[in-house]
Structure formats: C-alpha cells, structure tokens
Design a protein around this nucleic acid. Structure first.
Lengths: 275, 275
DNA sequence: CGCAAGAAAAATTTCGACTTTTTTCACTTT
DNA sequence: AAAGTGAAAAAAGTCGAAATTTTTCTTGCG
C-alpha cells in the first residue's frame, strides 16, 4: 500500500508474500482477473509492485486454495469457471453451511448473538432496494458475506469453518461474476431475517431447514445467470482438470535431485490433491 | 520433442516448488518433522537440495493446507498438535467421509467397484496380524489410506473429495504420531470388510452407519493414545492459534508499496482464513 | 500453398547475493 | 543477582539476473 502516510508504518511482522496473497485473493473474488486468464509475472509485478518471489508465494498459496491453477513450466492461470464446478460448490457449501449454522445455533454465546444482530442490521441497510451502481453492489456483497459469516461464527469447529470459508470464497467469485441483473430476489431481506429469527430462537432444526432452502433458491438464480454468461463468453469455460500432485509418495528419505532434462506432457496443478 | 530418453530423467513439466511441496507434505504426514518444530531454511536447503525460492513456494502452499504455520518475519513451523485439534479433525472427517462414502455407494460405477475390491485385497494382506516393524506399519498405513481413498473415489463431488482429503491428511499425521502400540483393534480387517460389503450391496444407509461407527471407534483409540503422547511430550502441544489473513479487504485497486518500517505484534498465519 | 525445422523472442523458474529483522550474548547498571 | 542495553551473529525475506523452457516467427522444402 502506498503507505498510510505519516502514521501506521505499513505493518511489519507480515511479509510481502502474505500481503500479495490477501490482495490477490480479494481481487480474484472480485473477478478483477477473469476465469481462465493467464497471470503473467511482468504484469503482476507492475500491478502489485513486488518482485517474483512474493508473487510466486502468493500464487502457490492460491493454487492450494483452488483459486488459481499452475500449469507446468507455463505459469499460473485464474481457475476456470464452469457450471459443473458451480453446482458442486453450491452443494458442498450448502452441506457445510447448514451443519455449521446448526452448530452455531446450538453452541453460540452472547457474543455470537450480538454479532449476528449487528451483521443483519448492516445488511438490512443495503437491502431495502436492489443495488444499482457497482459500488452499491460491492457493498451489498460484502454485507451479505458478513452476515453469513456471522451466522457461522458461532460454530465451535475450526475445521468446519475453515473448509466452509474456502468454498464460500469460490461461491463469492461466481456470485460476483453474475453481478448486474438476475441474481436478485424480491425478498432477499425477508429471507435472511427468517434465518436471524430462527437463530435467536435457538431452533436448530428450523434454522437448518431455512438455510437449506435459502441456499437452494439463490443457487437456482445464480446457476441460471452463470449458465447464460458462460454461453455468451465461452472463453471463460473450464476444461481439463487433472491432478498432478503425487498422492502418498511413500517415505522420501533424502530427496536427492539432479539437474535433469527430459520432456513430459504438461499437467495441471490445482488445489489440494484432486479436483 | 526430446523424447523420454531411456530412463526417466526426472520429470520436467513440473517445478522444484511442486516437487518439494509433495515431498515435504509426505514427510510431514510421516512426522519426519515433529509438530511445532521450526523449519529453518538452511536445514531444509540441505535436506531437499534446493534454493530458498522453491522452498518458500512449498511452505506457502503447505501453510494454506494447514500442515505448516508461518509466523511473521520469523519463518515457518510445523503445525502444532493438540487434542482439541484432533477431535475437531476427527469429527469433520467423519462428517465429510460419511457423506462422500454414501454418495459413492449411490453413484459409483463398475470401475469404482473394482477399485474398492482391489484396495481391500491389498489392505487385507497386511492386516492379518498386527504390523511389527516400522516398514510394516508404514505399509499398513498406506494400504489403509488407499482403501478409504478408494471408497471415497466413487463420490462425484470433486469439492467434497478435495476437502475430505485435506482433513484426512491431517488425520493421517496424528495417526502416524501414535504408531507403536495402542491404535490397533483386534478386528481392523473385519471392520473394513463390512464397509466393503455394504458398498457392494449398494446399501447407502448401512454404509454410512458402519463408517460412522468405524471412525468413531478408531478415533477413541487414537485420541487416548495421542492424549498420552502429548502429556509425555508437552513440547509438541499447540497454543496460540490466530488468524491474520485479512478477510475481505475491499477492492485493492493498485496495491502500491513503499519500503516502510515499523513494528507490530507477531501474528500466526495458518491455512485459509481462520483456524 | 502448406508445413516442418530451426532460430529468435518471451516467459517461467531458479539461484546467489543483498537487505531487513530477529535472536543471542556479553556488558553495564541499579 | 536481576534487568536493561547494545552490538554481533543468525535467520528470514526480497530482488535482480542467470538458466531453462515455451512460444512465436521466419525460412526452406515438398
């Protein structure tokens, strides 16, 4: 960052790699780079004003997060988008979020209640009517995420939250791809209000049921819109997904390596082990 | 095309970063480095015979995977171990694996059936009696993982598999920390045979139920053993977990950066956003 | 005219050295 | 003796340039 002028000397105890990771992740979620787009180092160096080392760290991490794909000796690309991927994301998110929300309803404390009330309030202020400008849409998306995040925050399982936030990030990328029209229900606010009420009433069953439906309905609209977009812009579409990362490579005692040559078919490298 | 000469000159179309990532990941799962241990670059450079650049890429990715923790300007450490973490992992794994298995039972094809039969056969050959030597134990663990992996492989959701494999890796690290005694049931084989049978019978309900129980029972033994180990070796224990990665940092248009100074409290940087 | 080879250009990956930050340790002070 | 103080040593983080690989462009041949 250009520096927060005189005070607050840009945070030490962080690294450029981490900072770029955060920024790039947010830019990816905002579709500042389009799905499938190549991420060239020269370009990135200019944009984020860092050398290749921090960039590669950030991109490596994002690869593991699945937002970016590494291709052999051919650099990195934004993870492609596809309807199949979105369907999978939606279902997985629903599965995790329903559980997390129910756990939150069961175990959340006073602080959690306060958090969800506060988040709902913030959300309600931008949901009275459909957001028009880009800035309004961004704000709506942020408040919306914050609310779902707050609902989940009462869940005691760190791992569930971690995994959920991973797929939620991807869902957000698709959502923000479908900005403009569509993707807007007449009663976004009421829908979420019901979630809040069930949460405060500590009715886990009802909460789960409502959230299940809520995600289902939004997903329908989103899928329709994204299907449309991908038809119009086939350059964004996904294709060859393949795993490369060796699964269980036995022991690997000393590694040992020799500058060797050779040639092999390029392989895509996505997050984790598969996908 | 140069051609793959006579004997496999170490794979091109991969990068050192990726290779180190795989090796280090496997070494971490095998507890070659102990939980909480500091991962110094000088040491790592010797062990894996690479420069810092590929190492940092690998460590970054492993941070996102949660197997490693980055600390500020103080380098990387192996993710600490704790009973609470293990409990969380076990529950999350169970949640994901039961669902994935059921989906596999419902949607798996002939290839899947063949895969699980084959994997079970391999597993059965090392499960007749309790493994004694370290090599036998490693082999048992591998076959065991392979079997569970095969069971899951029929699940059509790439995302569910991806997330599952992430927690499964962590579970494996704990399992292999509890090597020696304990952690061995009299009927490991029969237990898994039932899973296979339910799968082949396409009985999703029963399959889910059996797997739920199976994971529950193994977890009990594992938790007991790990509790014991952590008591004896308190230097492995986990403590301050905190998130650092900024959540939703708005837009971030140009980044811009200036070599700035300052001082701030160190923060731990774990996988994803939280945990 | 198409198309394969090969040279030139561009891009990725990796290393080695430089910079900054943290850690260690001897030395002084209360 | 405990606790600051401040240099020296060690370690992490970063850049720039070298080494490789991929991509593009040109040229020659069927």
């Amino acid at each position: 960052m250009k520096k927060t002028s005189n005070l607050a000397k840009t945070d030490t105890s962080t690294t450029l790699g981490i900072e770029v990771f955060c920024q790039l992740r947010d830019d990816l979620k905002a579709n500042r780079f389009k799905p499938g787009e190549r991420l060239r180092f020269e370009n990135m160096k200019r944009i984020y004003d860092v050398g290749v080392a921090p960039l590669r760290e950030a991109l490596s991490r994002l690869t593991e997060a699945g937002l970016v794909v590494q291709i052999g000796q051919k650099g990195y690309r934004v993870a492609p988008a596809s309807l199949a991927d979105l369907r999978d994301i939606v279902e997985t998110r629903r599965f995790l979020e329903v559980r997390g929300f129910q756990e939150a309803v069961r175990h959340g404390g006073d602080d959690w209640e306060e958090a969800i009330v506060a988040a709902f309030h913030g959300f309600s202020k931008v949901s009275q009517r459909k957001p028009a400008t880009a800035a309004e849409r961004a704000l709506w998306e942020e408040r919306h995420s914050n609310f779902h995040n707050a609902l989940m925050s009462g869940c005691p399982s760190r791992w569930l939250l971690q995994l959920w936030s991973m797929v939620f990030d991807h869902a957000e990328r698709y959502r923000r791809l479908a900005i403009e029209v569509g993707h807007w229900s007449d009663d976004e606010l009421g829908d979420h209000k019901k979630l809040l009420d069930a949460a405060l009433a500590r009715d886990a069953d009802k909460a789960g049921e409502l959230l299940h439906q809520h995600i289902g309905f939004s997903a329908e609209r989103l899928l329709a819109r994204i299907g449309q977009i991908l038809l119009e812009a086939p350059e964004l579409k996904a294709d060859g997904h393949e795993s490369t990362v060796k699964q269980d490579a036995a022991v690997s005692p000393k590694a040992g390596r020799t500058k060797a040559k050779g040639r092999r078919p390029a392989r895509v490298q996505t997050g984790g082990n598969s996908l």
